[in-house]
Simulated scan of single mutants.
Amino acid sequence: MTTITTADGVSLYVKDWGPKDGPAVTLSHGWPLSSDSWESLAFHLASAGFRVVHHDRRGHGRSSQPWDGNDMDHYADDLAQVIEAFDLRDVSAFGFSTGGGEVARYVGRHGTGRVARLGLISAITPLMLQTDANPGGLPLEVFDGFRAAQLADRAQFYRDIASGPFYGFNRPGAKVSQGLIETWFQQGMQAGFRNTYDSIAAFSATDHTEDLKKFDRPTLIIHGDDDQVVPIDASARATKKLVPHATLIEYAGAPHGLPDTHKDRFHADVLAFLKG
């Protein structure tokens, strides 16, 4: 565990797990979480011989909380600086949810010269917001509701997400894990207020269409067909159309937080892709 300082003075907290000579994997986390949200997969891959580098996004976790720069371009540039600081090459870059947008924008801005494989997990790509060109997206009112809820009572808002749609715990018969709820809540509350507020616009209104068109490496897309946070039709299935060579794996009945709710299958699918 260490920190690096970006070109604009932001301190990023970075974990570097596994053998240093192992194949490199980067993991970009979702909103409003931290690199801790990846701990199960990171441990599994590191134990299998991979070097797993995963950082807390600016404004999240143990990274510093800049007032400005809470947007996808800065997120992608931060990822690039992590990759360069650790001199990672032939990287398999995975992103979950907002982190999927980060990975896509990294490719859009920095290319794939250091990239071997790409993974989009429950990702926000290509565009969450409903527009004339993206009629299948979610209406602006949804994200305005997120912002209003954060301003009104961020702590309760985060508890409601974690105990409800994120893991599908609001579905009949769901096996609820209070531990997952608490861990999600703690990670969210560790992040900066301004940073998580601004990030709602970053993950909802950033169009990754052109970024995805630059994906020229083997790509894995994993998404649950009961994702209530990032509905699959406007995300994974739309992304597959823009990246036709990608492998799309749909998990029947799985929620947004499938890396935890479907852990064994998820680990096996990711490892098979990395070794394929």
Rank of each mutant, 00 (worst) to 15 (best):
Thr219Ser: 02
Ser122Met: 07
Thr98Glu: 14
His44Ala: 15
Arg105Tyr: 00
Phe86Met: 12
Leu258Asp: 04
Trp38Pro: 03
Ala24Gln: 00
Arg57Pro: 01
Arg114Trp: 12
Ala202Phe: 06
Ala201Gly: 11
Ser63Ala: 13
Gly49Gln: 03
Gln156Trp: 09
Asp153Ala: 09
Lys263Cys: 12
Ala238Leu: 10
Asp77Lys: 04
Leu120Thr: 00
Arg105Gly: 01
Gly59Leu: 01
Gln81Cys: 05
Gly61Gln: 04
Tyr167Ile: 07
His44Trp: 15
Gln130Phe: 02
Glu84Tyr: 03
Pro126Thr: 05
Arg109Glu: 11
Ala162Pro: 01
Ile181Lys: 07
Gly95Phe: 01
Asp8His: 12
Ile4His: 07
Phe157Cys: 05
His267Cys: 14
Ser47Asp: 12
Leu271Tyr: 07
Ala202Asp: 07
Ser122Leu: 07
Gly100Arg: 02
His223Trp: 08
Leu220Tyr: 10
Val10Ser: 02
Arg89His: 13
Ile161Asn: 02
Ala7Phe: 13
Gly95Val: 01
Tyr251Arg: 01
Glu102Asn: 10
Asp36Ile: 15
Gly99Trp: 04
Pro165His: 13
Thr5Val: 15
Asp227Val: 06
Arg62Asp: 11
Thr26Pro: 05
Ala238Tyr: 06
Ala149Trp: 03
Pro139Ala: 14
Val53Tyr: 03
Ala236Arg: 01
Met189Leu: 13
Val25His: 00
Leu248Gly: 03
Ser97Phe: 11
Ile161Met: 15
Gly22Arg: 03
Val25Leu: 02
Asp90Val: 06
Val229Asp: 09
Asp87Leu: 05
Gly30Phe: 00
Phe157His: 13
Trp31Ile: 04
Thr6Trp: 06
Gly61Thr: 08
Gly100Met: 13
Leu271Gln: 10
Gly100His: 02
Phe86Leu: 02
Glu210Met: 12
Leu140Arg: 15
Ile161Cys: 06
Arg105Ile: 02
